[in-house]
Simulated scan of single mutants.
Amino acid sequence: MTKYFRYIAIILFLAATSCSHKEIICPASENRQITVLFDWDHASGAAPEGMTLYFFPAGSREQIWRYDISGPNGGPVELPTGSYRMVAFNSDLPGIEISGKDSYSHISANARRASSGDYIASTGMLYGTTVSQLEVTPCGVRYSDSNGTVKECGQSIVRCHPDSLATAFTLLFKSVSGLERVASATAILHGMAPGIKIADRVPEGNGASLPSQLAFNTAGHEMTSGATGFYPADAKGITLQLIVACNDGKTYSHNFDITEQIMNSPSKHNVIIMIDNISIPDGEPSSPDDEIGGIDVGVDGWSNIEIDIGVTLP
């Protein structure tokens, strides 16, 4: 019987001292190193040269932390223990300016403005990701992923999934007659958003104009170009302006309403605009039936313009 009670005592002792009953004691340290890793499964093929990370503390008067990490994979950063919200985006785009860096909800990416008017430069593809709740503790990290799932990691690893924040616009003019008379051509998207709020991925504003130079395929009767910018905040009244400078020194302009193509695009990250069956004017356009701002507008939709349309982009 004594031996039996001895076994019971040993079992109770082991149960009392097992890991499940121990209080976890974390090392006391104000600053902790965490590792932010980027998984590019939402943006296959992306390989930015570097990423910029902003950590906004929960306290309004606390310091905002910024880190620049080279390469697309992420890396270690050091933060004081506390609560944060994080924004990260690629840092290799000269066509982008960052504003609102004082808060998580205000930080925005903006296309650089041209020398005049509402023209903006092509931004290049912007990628971004956020962590809305991040707790840095002496024992590791606790954070909410993009699906709202709370994750904890004793190794202090935060995994993020950047996605496209900008839109790649592909412009295709097919079955173009009279292309042999064209010396150069420019396409301008009117009604674009000049910027986007990174945290909630909402485009800001309308009315920006995004120009791009067209390349010719004379044998195939096609003109193509590509530009990257921000999807319109309000996809209504979006127009594509085609400006052609002909070999005879005359310049013509034609506007196309592309609202329906924008709204019906299956993706907001990759939009293809197609204009089919157009004819470049041979000489003066048809007799004008209206006059707008000193520009004769012919019944065939072409305008003969005599102004300098050059735009110096930043």
Rank of each mutant, 00 (worst) to 15 (best):
G191N: 03
N147E: 07
R201P: 03
C160L: 15
N304D: 14
A185N: 08
A58V: 00
P203N: 03
F13K: 01
L172Q: 05
D39Q: 07
V202Q: 12
S105L: 11
I188Q: 03
S91C: 11
A111T: 01
S60I: 08
K236H: 14
A219P: 10
I69H: 01
A245P: 04
N217R: 11
T137N: 04
I305Q: 12
Y143Q: 05
P281T: 06
I69W: 00
E306V: 08
H21E: 02
M192V: 00
R112Q: 08
A16I: 05
S44E: 08
M274D: 01
A47C: 06
K22D: 09
K250T: 12
N217E: 14
G237I: 04
A58G: 00
F55M: 09
E49H: 11
T228S: 07
G301I: 03
P27K: 11
D145N: 15
V182L: 09
D308L: 05
D68E: 09
I157N: 06
L189K: 03
H221W: 11
S132R: 10
S175V: 12
S287M: 10
I309H: 02
G59V: 04
T137M: 07
D282Y: 14
I278Q: 06
E62S: 08
V182D: 13
E49I: 07
T218H: 11
A121C: 12
H269L: 09
D289L: 15
K101V: 06
G50F: 09
S265A: 14
Q261T: 05
M223Q: 10
S105Y: 12
G124Q: 06
I24T: 10
D200C: 12
E78Y: 09
F173Y: 12
S279T: 15
C139T: 05
F38Q: 04
V202T: 13
G205K: 02
A183M: 12
G95W: 08
V136M: 06
G249A: 11
G71H: 12
A9R: 13
K22G: 01
L214P: 12
Y54S: 02
G191W: 00
V150N: 00
R32I: 14
S209T: 00
D68M: 07
P72S: 14
D296H: 04
T239W: 10
K268R: 15
G75C: 11
G298A: 15
G124I: 10
D145R: 08
S44I: 07
N304V: 00
Q133K: 01
I243F: 07
E204S: 11
S184A: 10
V176I: 09
A47M: 05
C139G: 13
P211Q: 08
T251A: 07
V297K: 08
K151N: 08
G207T: 11
L171S: 09
P76K: 11
T259V: 12
I273N: 00
I273W: 01
I278V: 15
H254K: 15
N147T: 04
G195M: 07
I198H: 04
A15N: 14
W302H: 01
S18I: 01
R181H: 10
S286D: 15
L53A: 05
T186D: 02
L53E: 06
D300V: 04
R66L: 09
Y7W: 13
V182T: 06
L79W: 02
I157R: 10
I280H: 08
I120G: 04
I69F: 04
